[in-house]
């Protein structure tokens, strides 16, 4: 079927999820929420570590052991990236709240900085982890 561009077909489509083109503006927004929820779950780990450290050597070693396990490392890596992304994108949001960076080009660039920066920051932190001899 040949497509001719008529005034009707040139009109923008309504943003229904199946026909909506993915773009950095929506990706950064969705990721901010998703990482926020993931980090709220991750606060359980902060609780566990502090309570174990208050409880005694055996609970503390148990939590450390979990952090060094396969599942523990996987979760810690995920939470590190979530934290880096939510931190960078959160700073971006605060700058937008202050009225900065609302030009379309600037806005898109800032979104990419959040996404790429989060991976760079995660890599830096885990480079520090391995430079110190790995986990546990």
């Amino acid at each position: 079927m040949s497509e001719t561009i008529t005034p009707e077909s040139a009109r923008p489509l309504s943003p229904h999820i199946q026909i909506y083109r993915w773009q950095i503006q929506m990706v950064t927004s969705i990721l901010h929420r998703a990482t926020g929820v993931a980090l709220a779950v991750g606060s359980i780990m902060v609780c566990a570590l502090l309570l174990a450290l208050a409880a005694g050597p055996y609970p503390y070693e148990a939590v450390r052991g979990f952090c060094g396990s396969g599942l523990g490392l996987f979760l810690l890596l995920g939470w590190t990236w979530s934290l880096c992304y939510h931190l960078l994108n959160g700073i971006r949001h605060l700058l937008h709240d202050a009225g900065m960076g609302f030009g379309i080009a600037q806005f898109i660039r800032a979104g990419w900085i959040s996404v790429i920066g989060s991976f760079v920051l995660t890599a830096l932190i885990w480079a520090c982890v391995f430079a110190r001899g790995g986990v546990a």
């Binding site: 050597p57 959160g90 700073i91 932190i125 001899g133």
Partner: peptide, 20 residues
């Protein structure tokens, strides 16, 4: 949370090989 998170990352790195 901006400075506190940066501090907590430093603390986590310090705790890596810390025993009880």
């Amino acid at each position: 949370l901006i400075p506190l998170v940066l501090w907590s990352i430093w603390l986590a790195l310090m705790l890596l090989h810390a025993d009880y």
